[in-house]
Design a protein around this nucleic acid. Structure first.
Length: 238
DNA sequence: AGCCTTTGACCAGCG
DNA sequence: TCGCTGGTCAAAGGC
């Protein structure tokens, strides 16, 4: 088997497994910190499994692992690692509005919007192979409180918000003026996220211009357009 | 019935 | 100016 073949295959399989894992995880991930750790371990294990299964994948997998290590491990990223398709259920309702394979398609990036009509918040979730989340980038601030709850199906991960340490945090964060993003969120090298806010078609037009006020409130108040990279960890532990 | 996910296409910015 | 990449929209399908 040629190198290229192997690579292609691995990539394909990685993507595939990602989805597979994703659907499973999507429905069966109880989201408590404790469980999280366990699950994370499981994920890591499965990753290792897959790795051994696909030795030919050494190259890409290495990259992936490396990425995961730097992004997840070193950053204490565990919480959302397993969320897969429903990343970082921070108590808000998100609707996925797009997905893109960036950088060769090795890491599909998903785009989510807060479902609240007047909420301009968006987030980008970068996945690695196996559906693990390597990075979550928030844009904007919620101008509303977290919704009480949702159906347990797709919101599945929502569960008991009480289980989420970050919930309280989220509450705090949702307050305008809170240092949520500006305080700790680093735009990091991706500083692009800041400017990109106003990018495209007159900025966050979202057709319902009614949100402008809030948007102004939030984004204008922040230097970086409160784009925030939360690196999956999202400082939920802080 | 309503909401969400998926997917392809389009547009804008940047090198 | 061209090509590439990233971000978003819109339609269709599924739950």
């Amino acid at each position: 088997m040629s190198h290229q073949q192997a690579l292609a295959q691995v990539t394909a399989q990685a993507v595939h497994s990602q989805y597979t894992v994703g659907s499973q995880a999507d429905y069966s991930l109880p989201f408590s910190s404790a469980t999280t750790s366990a699950l994370t371990s499981q994920f890591i294990n499965s990753s290792a499994n897959v790795t051994s299964m696909k030795e030919t994948a050494t190259l890409p997998l290495h990259t992936v692992n490396d990425n995961l290590k730097s992004n997840e491990v070193s950053q204490g990223f565990q919480t959302s690692a397993l969320t897969v398709d429903k990343p970082a259920d921070d108590g808000y309702n998100w609707r996925k509005y797009g997905q893109k394979a960036v950088k060769g398609g090795e890491y599909p990036r998903s785009y989510y919007k807060c479902t609240q009509a007047s909420c301009p918040v968006k987030k980008k979730v970068e996945h690695s192979a196996y559906g693990q989340i390597t990075q979550i980038i928030y844009r904007g601030q919620h101008n509303h409180q977290r919704p009480p709850k949702r159906r347990s199906k797709d919101g599945g991960n929502l569960l008991n918000e009480d289980d989420f340490p970050e919930n309280r945090d989220a509450l705090t964060r949702s307050e305008p003026g809170s240092q949520d993003h500006s305080g700790k969120v680093e735009v990091s090298n991706d500083g692009i996220t800041g400017p990109s806010v106003s990018k495209r078609r007159g900025g966050g037009d979202q057709s319902s211009g009614s949100s402008d006020t809030e948007e102004d409130n939030d984004e204008a108040g922040d230097d970086n357009g409160d784009a925030g990279i939360v690196n999956a960890n999202k400082r939920w532990f802080m």
